[in-house]
Each structure stands twice: as C-alpha cells, then as structure tokens.
C-alpha cells in the first residue's frame, strides 16, 4: 500500500512535467496545425539557460527563493524570445505553404538545436551530460512510517508550479480576450483576421507562451533528474508529444490528462515491472489509446476543412 502511494506520488510529479511540455505542443498545434518538433529542444535550450544562470548566481544565491525565481525567469523569458524568433523566421514564411514543409522545418530546427548544442564552442558545455545544480536543495517534505513513503520538497514545489501554470493557462485560453482570439485563430485564422484579430501577433504570442512553459517544465525535469544534456529535448519532447496525442492534440485539458496518465503509466512500469520496459510500454500505451480512440482521449476526429 505504501509502495503504491509512493509510485502514485512519483508518477504525478513526472506527469505534471510531461503535461507542461505537452501543453506547448497542443497550443501550437491548436493555432497552426503544426506539430512543432523543435518544442522539446527549445525546452532543452531553456534548461541550459537556467543552468548558466544558476552558475552565474553562485552556490548560496541560487538555492534561495529569489535565486530560484531568477533561474526560472531567465530561462522562461529567454525561451519565449527563442520561440518568437523560430516562429518569425522559420515558420511564418512557410505559413501558406503545404503543412509538410513546416513540419520538416520543425524537425530541422530540432536537430539544429540538439546537435548544435553538442558543439565545442567554448560558451557551450559540450555534448556530455552535466550535473544540474541543486537550485532546490532536496529536503524530505513528508515521511510516512519507516520511510515507507517519502515526498520530497522539490516534488511538491514542482507539482505546485506545474498546477499553477496549467490553471493560469486554462484561465488565459477560456476567460480572456486574448484566449478568445487564440481560439478563433485556431479555428480559422483567415476568418479571425476579419474580426480585426491581429493573427500574426496571436500566433507569435502562442509560440512565446508555449516556449516559456517548456522552459519551466524543462527546469523541473532537470531538477528531478539532476542532469542536463543536449539530447534531453529529443527524449522528453517525444514523451510529451505522446502525452499530447494521448489526450487529443489541440485539446488543452487533454494535454494535462495525457501527461499525468503517461507519467503514472511509466512510474508503475518501473515500479512493478522493470525500468527497461518503460519506453516500450509508454509507446505501446499510445498505440492502444489510438486504436480505441483515434483522436486521443478527448480529441474528436473531425473531417479536414478544405
């Protein structure tokens, strides 16, 4: 019983991170019908920004509350900027081209980032994984019984940050003027423009928002994993993409549920079977969901608009 509880906690902590990254995939897909395969790598860049900031702050500063806030702020703002530039110069010129063109571009950016960060350029740490500094010093937040169940403070903080970001996003999308514009662009950006909505600006802001969320999620992941590497974006990004598809891509609450479900499934496989099975089961689970519900758990299979 205690073991089950522990796995549940670990699974939820991992799942919220997947959910945050999945939200980025789903939002961008929502407004552009583009699978932004570079999303995971943007997240990775964000983690390196946080890594550099943490070192710049020094050991004492970075584990203070202010230090953590600075690390997150720098990474999230930096990634928002990166997302802005990627959209502006890589995707926008292809807006009216066939979707495959943008998709291939996305894969190209993904590779450019993940392999570019392995280059030995002096200011980059290179290809080898690095230890991520302890921006949140691990403290046992809750211990049940004879260490049967341990909840770490970073798990609680991570969960708290993730939930706050998700609630904020839900509010933004469904309760604000910008969210309404986003949903209008998502349905048809040409008609949205006829309402006076500056569609280019809405799309750019969506990219910035999703990239900032990715940076936040990436930092939480790096804190959990205590490491950072140029290829982490490919791996985490792919998992989060799976989460978004499980939930139904384009569906905001679906991405959250997909992320949590995936985190729990993985944790239970690791806990009760073997960790080597984790990825196989994660992708197998995706296939299973798509067999039963081709649009994902919440998505609807809609006829393509022509």
């Amino acid at each position: 019983m205690a073991q089950l509880l522990q796995h549940l906690i670990n699974g939820l902590a991992a799942g919220t991170i997947y959910a945050l990254v999945a939200l980025g995939y789903t939002m961008v897909y929502g407004v552009l019908k583009l699978i932004n395969f570079a999303h995971g790598d943007v997240m990775m860049v964000g983690v390196y920004m946080g890594y550099a900031t943490a070192f710049a702050l020094g050991r004492d500063m970075r584990s203070s509350l202010l230090g953590v806030a600075v690390v997150f702020a720098v990474a999230m703002l930096g990634c928002a900027l990166l997302g802005f530039f990627i959209e502006r110069f890589a995707y926008r010129p292809l807006r009216e081209k066939p979707r495959l063109t943008a998709l291939i571009t996305a894969i190209g950016i993904s590779f450019a980032l993940s392999y570019g960060f392995q280059l030995d350029l002096g200011f980059l740490p290179g290809a080898a994984p690095r230890a991520f500094p302890e921006v949140i010093e691990p403290v046992e937040w809750l211990v049940i019984g004879d260490r049967d169940v341990v909840v770490w403070n970073w798990q609680v903080i991570s969960f708290g940050i993730a939930v706050a970001l998700m609630v904020g996003l839900q509010y933004l999308v469904f309760r604000t003027r910008f969210g309404r514009a986003m949903r209008a662009v998502s349905w048809d950006h040409r008609v949205a423009a006829l309402m006076g909505i500056p569609t280019d600006r809405v799309i750019a802001l969506t990219f910035m928002l999703s990239s900032a969320l990715a940076a936040g999620a990436g930092l939480l992941y790096a804190i959990k994993d205590t490491s950072v590497s140029p290829l982490m974006g490919l791996y985490v990004g792919l998992k989060a993409f799976v989460a978004a598809v499980i939930g139904g891509i384009g569906h905001v609450p679906g991405a959250v549920v997909g992320g949590l479900v995936l985190g729990l499934v993985e944790e239970f496989v690791v806990g009760y079977a073997a960790s080597t099975w984790r990825d196989a089961v994660a992708f197998g689970f995706l296939i299973l969901v798509l067999l039963v519900k081709p649009g994902g758990l919440f998505g609807r299979v809609a006829a393509e608009k022509v």
Binding site: R177, R180, A181, W187, D188, V191, L194, M195, I197
Partner: peptide
C-alpha cells in the same frame, strides 16, 4: 466581411461569436 460559407466559429457560443465581432 461575412465570408463565403459564413465562417462562424462552430465551437464557440452564439454570444461569443457576436462578441468576437466587436473584438476591437
């Protein structure tokens, strides 16, 4: 411009559609 095929936002309520008309 009320476009060809009407172009209403089907996943929003009538009220929300109208409010979008007054977006600016």
């Amino acid at each position: 411009h009320a476009p060809e095929g009407r172009g209403v936002f089907p996943n929003m309520s009538v009220q929300e559609n109208l409010e979008l008309g007054a977006y600016l």
